[in-house]
Design a protein around this nucleic acid. Structure first.
Lengths: 355, 355
DNA sequence: CTGAAAGCGCTTACAG
DNA sequence: CTGAAAGCGCTTACAG
């Protein structure tokens, strides 16, 4: 590679090392290092001189060399299921902020299926102090990654994916969320429920099934009789359109449910739209509920009843769990934290039509 | 600090260095290093032995040491205005993905006002190969950061903040977006426009003003007569509620505009909600347009006319610009790229009431 | 206050 | 194939 001639501007040649920098200031490397690290026994004059040069040149000690000398990396690896799910991104934002306030920087990666091993290896090669996973993952793959981390002695935490073997987790109590929602609707006289995206489901959904079941049973209702699912009609997606289409399918049924429960707010809002297009009045003719309490749910017509995830509590707990593990001896038993959700009643739920 | 006793499990003691690992495999450090780096002249048997041990132990060479020895960091610093603006996060997600495909990892930080210096210094201490800013920043602060990066010889790019001195930028042509929107509405007979969050504005907004002005003038209309702004009535925010309140204010006016132009879709959707609450029919009585083409805009009643940001093109260009700068001599002139937006006509705009 | 030295974890010639 | 050595950029005793 041909050498690029240095520009002859007024700006000093870029300083790449403490040696360069010490030469530039006219002091010993040792002295410079002591100033930078705030060690005692230096003349104020020397300190000022170095500080000024530091500000002028913008010299920054090489973090990699610092780490080699034993300085902690103060980095946390955060592995996201994706960056396109708003509630997950809200958690990321909150966690990143909390960690930064505590002096940690976040190394953020997306866990594309099959590439989990690469992501974790990258984190380990960077010697992160802990790894946090946010989202819902392929069970076997993430369990393998967590086993690796444990073997490696690197603390971990999984946010949102409940029920993983040997994993430290912080998750929303989705079962309790469904119980709250069902009780609200049962109190309104509803006895038959259409499930949008909730049935036939991977783990995080089955928590919900547990909740639905429990709520129904406590009122003496049978799950199979009280619920109906049409998820098999479309390829499963988590977006507006999936809800819109499914709502249409429910309306075409001879025996319509009186309430629709959606996996999330996007599907719920899509259902509202589908019902609107079909000329069905919500909540007069049918009630609709979402999950997650995303912001747009308060802007639809009608506004959407939903379950709030309590993201602040989730992330506060997560940060605590992560930070407590740092430098502490590895725990024998995994830590499992549950976060309580909150029911948010809006306009989309009302008394059952023919209760 | 008390030493933590190593667990006596079957798992081998954690291997922290090539020295440890070489001892574990029973080979010389040099040999191990050569296998890891795929150098020629090794017996297949040795290669297999090392590979197997690598897989078994999960040993990862220390990235910091690698870098010290001259390996490039392959890291790009990405500095976000925040992680709560969905279009910005969509750009982050797309950029992170493109960079990862090219073998770069992303170091993501949030640029809290006043802490920009720290963020950039952290990036530099990590020896990132380039720094990308996504969003809209305090002008002087970001210009100072960019000057530092240039002095430092580290490539940079700003996505979305147009018009910065000496900065490489990729930005949406918001002026062209407003022209397209205005022409659409002018063709529908609209002659008076309420501006929601667009006026009295920092740079990125003034691009819009330029576009509005140009479109109006080309039809012989005067800006001051044709537009009205009520932004002074509330503290400026970018959310649904701001739009909802402002829409109410516009309806209370003796001389109502026939169309409302919102800074973004959230404000636009909020306006739809405010109009709905006030019993005003959209678009029969008034038209509403947003900006950004966020997903929820197609779920409201009515659906929202807006401008699409063409995020794919933005990020493809951004990745190209960044990667082209790596290892290339610094350019004398900043690179300025403009991305063309696209008009998305939906239900919220229609013929002017009394055209 | 300065300077020379050791060592963090690696790779890469260099000599066996 | 192995081993000893140098050196990347730093900090931290250690001796002046």
């Amino acid at each position: 590679m041909a050498k690029i001639p240095r520009p002859k501007s007024a700006a000093p040649t870029v300083l790449r090392s403490t040696a360069d920098f010490a030469r530039h200031v006219g002091l010993a490397r040792t002295t410079v290092s002591r100033v930078i690290n705030g060690q005692p026994g230096l003349k104020q004059k020397t300190i000022d001189r170095v500080q000024r040069a530091l500000a002028e040149t913008g010299f920054t000690p090489n973090a990699h060399a610092l780490h080699l000398k034993g300085k902690r990396t103060a980095m946390i690896g955060i592995c996201m299921e994706d960056l396109l799910t708003p509630p997950a991104v809200r958690k990321l934002a909150a966690l990143q902020r909390l960690l930064r306030d505590r002096g940690f920087s976040s190394l953020i990666e997306v866990f594309t299926p099959g590439a989990g091993r690469d992501v974790v290896r990258h984190f380990l090669s960077m010697r992160v102090e802990a790894v946090v996973f946010i989202g819902h993952f392929h069970r076997e793959e993430i369990e393998a990654r967590i086993a690796e981390l444990i073997a490696h002695g690197t603390p971990h935490l999984v946010i949102d994916h409940y029920g993983l073997k040997n994993a430290n987790t912080v998750s929303l109590d989705r079962s309790a969320g469904m119980v709250a929602l069902l009780n609200h609707l049962l109190d309104l006289g509803h006895r038959s429920f259409g499930l949008l995206g909730i049935a036939r489901a991977p783990e995080s959904r089955s928590d919900r099934m547990t909740g639905i079941n429990a709520a129904l049973r406590s009122r003496g209702l049978d799950f199979d009789e009280a619920t109906i699912s049409l998820d098999h009609l479309h390829e499963r997606r988590n977006d507006f359109d999936y809800g819109r289409k499914l709502a249409g399918n429910f309306m075409a049924l001879p025996q319509r449910p009186t309430a629709l429960l959606a996996l999330n707010d996007a599907i719920g809002v899509g259902a509202l739209r589908g019902l609107h297009d079909a000329g069905v009045k919500v909540p007069r003719e049918i009630s609709v509920a979402g999950f997650n309490n995303q912001d747009f749910g308060s802007m639809t017509t009608p506004t959407l009843t939903t379950i709030d995830q309590n993201i602040e509590a989730t992330i506060a707990t997560a940060a605590e769990v992560i930070l407590a593990q740092l430098g502490a001896p590895a725990r024998a038993k995994p830590l499992v934290h549950m976060i309580e959700p909150a029911l948010v009643v809006r306009e989309s739920t009302g008394p059952a039509r023919s209760a």
